[in-house]
């Protein structure tokens, strides 16, 4: 494998100009590179799953429908969709958790008030009617976040000609969330070892407890994101250049299947008797 790579590099550096070099490499090295791929089993040419744009439309559409007036009618359909996508993506926690949360909310908001009607259960029922909509929308949103990398999202938004300020901001946000999450996890680990995590301590000094978590978390996150922004700006993110994509986003069979599934679920939600009323 190695000798091929070396040849590729040499070919470029003897061929002079930057643009020409790129082309020379791409034609010269295609064969050995593919050979490597077959052995290594890694092919960056096709992306499994839905097009990022499909996922964005799906999340926006479903959230709007569910949160709108009469949205409860569509909640079961969106929950089915969210659970199916979780199963497909093999996120077993969400595949079990999402329906479990929905069932719990249904029991609290619909079954309990009938069985034991009073002011408390009536208030709970109203809250649950909203919470179940949130749960459905968040379930889909989690699929979008879990399966869309920042670069995929940026490529999808670019394909729609979304202004750079928006696409870069959203992509960076998607990248920074996990940084904050991992720094938080590390700070929590450190707090656990110092005996600073515990309901009793937090109840006695709630502000202090929050401060002890947030200060190191912010300090560590800032330090981590400073390197990230330096490295990404140097590599041209958000520059005046016109970016390309290793695999330009394209709609495929999964997107078609999803469109058909959404149509069927929407029709079922409209014509079938309402479960949540």
């Amino acid at each position: 494998m190695r000798p091929d790579n070396v040849e590729v590099r040499t070919a470029e550096h003897t061929s002079g100009g930057h643009g020409d070099a790129a082309l020379a490499v791409s034609t010269g090295a295609r064969k050995p590179a593919r050979g490597n791929l077959e052995e290594g089993g890694v092919a960056p040419t096709r992306r499994p799953g839905l097009d990022p744009r499909t996922k964005i439309v799906l999340v926006v559409l479903c959230s709007a429908v569910v949160m709108g007036s009469g949205g409860l009618r569509f909640v079961p359909a969106v929950l089915v969709l969210g659970t199916t996508l979780a199963v497909w993506e093999r996120s077993w926690v969400r595949a079990v958790g999402l329906p479990a949360v929905a069932v719990a909310l249904w029991v609290l908001g619909w079954v309990l008030p009938l069985w034991w009607p009073n002011l408390l259960t009536a208030t709970t029922a109203i809250a649950c009617a909203y919470l179940i909509r949130f749960a459905a929308a968040i379930g889909l949103g989690m699929h979008l976040i879990a399966t869309t990398s920042p670069t995929l999202l940026a490529a999808g938004l670019r394909a729609w000609r979304v202004p750079r300020a928006v696409s870069v901001t959203l992509a960076v946000m998607l990248r920074v969330f996990p940084v904050v999450a991992s720094e938080s996890a590390a700070v929590l680990d450190a707090m656990r070892l110092r005996g600073l995590v515990g309901a009793r301590g937090l109840a006695r000094h709630p502000v202090l407890g929050i401060e002890r978590f947030t200060v190191p978390m912010i300090a560590a996150s800032l330090r981590a994101t400073e390197d990230l922004s330096a490295a990404t700006i140097l590599r041209g993110l958000g520059s005046h250049r016109r970016p390309t994509a290793m695999v330009p986003p394209r709609f495929g069979v999964p997107d078609l299947i999803l469109a058909v599934a959404v149509a069927i679920l929407a029709a079922a939600a409209v014509w079938m008797p309402q479960v949540l009323a």
Partner: peptide, 24 residues
């Protein structure tokens, strides 16, 4: 692929170079 994408390299070039780098 990230730097090459942002710097506007042709997709085919990006794929070739990424494949070579991954093989290494």
């Amino acid at each position: 692929a990230f730097a090459m994408e942002n710097l506007g390299f042709p997709p085919e070039t990006i794929r070739t170079r990424v494949a070579a780098a991954l093989a290494g």
